[in-house]
Design a protein around this nucleic acid. Structure first.
Lengths: 350, 350
DNA sequence: GAGTGTGACTGAAGCGCTTCAGAACGTCCA
DNA sequence: TGGACGTTCTGAAGCGCTTCAGTCACACTC
């Protein structure tokens, strides 16, 4: 009693008594056959339980698969709790949504991006890479497959579309604001510089050779204004790690009067750390974040931060991807503006 | 000057002077050829720029595609901002991660789930459906394709694995707690009962015929304890809509002393609405939520809510999906426990 | 009534791979 | 010395579909 074989185009074709090509046309090119015949074919298909052309076979024949790949720097399991990433995906999705394309998520291993094998097996016509280390093997793998690619927050890759944000300038903006307020002693709190799970104080050498462009640029932006400052690296951009890191930075004597954070999430942790020490923000310590995720406005106190257009970033990436699918050439990078959003977590030093 | 054709298995085979089968084996069954030959083949492949077997062709030949499909009730663009959904996806992803499978997201149209065409074209071996309306066409489409499926929070479908939570019992738990505190006048705040974008007061008939099982069960759970109460429906589970809806419910005279919300997100809006009216939680109005997303603990005041194991839900679904892939039979539904988490948003009525 | 379209359908050649039943050639032991 | 067995590699048959160059029949035109 083996299961009945799934019907195929041929099944339907011979049931109706036409050629396979005709059945295919019934689905894909209704103008190629008479309406009456088409009806008959569709009816027969329905009664045979044929659900339409198999997507894999179709993809093989047409050489495209109506899917946009998205490579994550981190495991899926941590991606969805990352507000900034979620918003970017949001924007990307809204574009992809409208075109009957699916989104194929390729989870990263640790923070190094997806494994090459994952990339090699993923079925997508175009790939969007988000915030991978400069030397991610996944980037090479996409290249090797010859898939068009758009990178977000990534360095120049030949023949690749790109959307980016002025992380360096944004960080400088924030640091300058604090400097203008009179701050001179800073603590810098950052997420990973390398995908090695390392945390702790950051050496100049580690900073200089960091493969995460975004991290590097933000830190350089801060330091350009402030001069050398103690930096604490968290393995991930999480509130908890930020809290612990900020505590370390605040334990220095003399205590820094301001904390420059590479993300809002870290800044939320920093706010907490300041409270933990019985101090107040911004009276005792000023805190700035980066990203301007929605929660920044609701934080206690509302967080001064650098706004980058996260949704727009995703949307643009999606549009570029779709355009590449249509055979367009990559073109120059799309650069989106950043701005400083001043709220209540910053003030003149006491 | 047309682009050089992409190399295929054959390209490599003839370059090395072996059969195509051997090259295939070099990639998929290293034990089928001598190590030396394998080396030669891989080297030749590398120098020809061959990135390994094409995933689509391989899928066609092997009849599976190393991908798990995930059908969303809502558009992708709103999914990522949904904390509960994110956590479920999280759990699912962590399972899928470990098996070199990709996650193919199928965005829903409005709230009715993905369109059948999207389902028909998606390349996945197994599909996970999350919180779709009972009559979603997407469910039929998956059936038609003969794909194994696991549903989360969905009614019984023949031949389908299922993971679910006792929404009815959970809601009853919360309502009972309030009732025991002495509350008798309630307002009930819910998200969509149907995917029609409707909002406003809910009639008994609309409640009875709601195609969203989860919504229905939670409301029935509340009402079983409290008896008939005014219900306000929000088109989506968002803080803003919750705030507006709660305001409506609170404008009744006599004013309800407690608000029963179908989700934490709505409850957050309700907290805000109470403040908007110059009242205090829980002194003037008690509020309970449902889900216990992380933010519930940080709310002001911390929210009393029904905890459901969201991550676990996703994880179980992932495991079931993977097991179905291995040819397992669906088996009975997996039921996860709920519990009441009492925090500071509930108290005896003034 | 020969020439010219035109709409409706078909045949066959792929798309790039996997897989399975062998073939070819040793090796080993009785 | 010969049969049993292993290892290594190959041929060919698919997987289910698209697509393009036709074929065929039939109406039109002058």
């Amino acid at each position: 009693m083996d299961r009945p074989r799934k019907p195929t185009l041929d099944t339907v074709a011979s049931a109706v008594g036409v050629s396979r090509a005709t059945v295919s046309n019934a689905y894909n090119r209704p103008d190629q056959l008479s309406a009456a015949l088409r009806e008959r074919i569709l009816a027969a298909a329905a009664s045979l339980g044929y659900a339409g052309p198999d997507p894999v076979a179709r993809s093989l024949a047409t050489r495209h698969s109506a899917a946009v790949g998205f490579m994550l720097g981190q495991q899926l399991s941590t991606s969805f709790s990352d507000a900034a990433l979620s918003i970017v995906l949001d924007g990307l999705a809204s574009t992809v949504d409208g075109h009957d394309h699916c989104l194929v998520l390729m989870p990263g291993r640790d923070r190094g991006g997806p494994r090459p094998e994952t990339v090699a097996r993923a079925q997508a016509d175009v790939v969007v890479a988000y915030s991978l280390p400069d030397d991610a093997p996944a980037l090479v793998a996409v290249r090797a497959r010859g898939l068009p690619m758009v990178v977000i927050d990534q360095p120049v890759l030949p023949d690749t579309a790109r959307v980016e944000v002025d992380d360096f300038g944004g960080a400088r903006l924030a640091a300058t604001a604090l400097h203008d307020l009179g701050h001179r002693r800073f603590g810098v709190l950052t997420f990973a510089l390398r995908p090695d799970g390392h945390g702790g104080p950051v050496s100049a050498e580690r900073l200089a050779t960091a493969p995460f462009r975004v991290t590097r640029d933000r830190l350089h932006g801060y330091l350009e204004v402030t001069g050398p400052q103690p930096i604490w690296e968290c393995a991930r951009s999480s509130r908890e790690l930020g809290r612990a890191g900020a505590r370390e930075l605040l334990s220095a004597t003399p205590r820094p009067t301001a904390l420059l954070c590479a993300s809002d999430e870290l800044a939320f942790g920093a706010l907490q750390a300041v409270r933990d020490l019985g101090l107040r923000v911004p009276h005792d310590v000023s805190v700035v974040g980066f990203d301007d995720v929605p929660a920044a406005a609701y934080a206690d106190p509302p967080l001064t931060t650098v706004r980058q257009p996260l949704a727009e970033k995703g949307r643009r990436a999606g549009e570029l991807a779709l355009r590449l699918l249509d055979g367009a050439r990559p073109g120059g990078p799309t650069r989106l503006p950043v701005s400083l959003v001043s709220r209540d977590s910053t003030a003149t030093p006491a």
